[in-house]
Amino acid sequence: MILLIDLCCRDGSLSRDEFVAPVERLLCRIGVPFATRHYTAVGAPDLEAADAAILCGTALMDTGFIEHPFRWLTAFERPVLGISSGMRALAAAFGGGTGPCCEIGMVDVRVLAPDPLFAGREVFSAYTVHEDAVQVPGEFVPLAASDRCVQAIRHRSLPLYGLLFHPEVRNEWIVERFCELVDRQSP
């Protein structure tokens, strides 16, 4: 079961349909069971039951999640996919900061390092909506970048991924590959 985490300003927000529901529909299509929780309501039983977690993005103006520590991410050890704001939350949990780098729209993403998530792809076009880029934390490696900033990171030894772009828009294959990876890691 994948724990899908809503990072929007409040539970049941108007942004939910834009940033969470498309990922839910994608997981349905892939055929992976999931449970959605707002980030403020994630409890120990949710984390224990999860084989993996996906942290969804938020609207450009929606940055309330930054105040939340997401401490559980450092001890979770199962696969994590942080999307856009979710990447920011993941990096922040490991001490990574941010710097201004606004991208809105399609950008070319170049793969920098070999990884099962992007295997066989060198460059692809991806949909971005973000105000800041993430500074890669010490325990992470950059996996892909646009001309302007790092677009994907992975923890050096754990299956923790962050994507600055939105894979649910025109790059559903990345979420499919993440789910395959979850499948392989699950007991």
Binding site: D17, A21, L60, M61, D62, I104, M106, E168
Partner: peptide
């Protein structure tokens, strides 16, 4: 993406929130 991107950019410039509740709807 064409339409959404352009509205997002203008909203950012004006400091307005942008909502697309039908985004990628089934």
């Amino acid at each position: 993406v064409y339409q959404a991107t352009r509205v997002q950019r203008i909203c950012r410039k004006l400091g307005l929130w942008c909502f697309n509740p039908l985004w990628l709807a089934d």
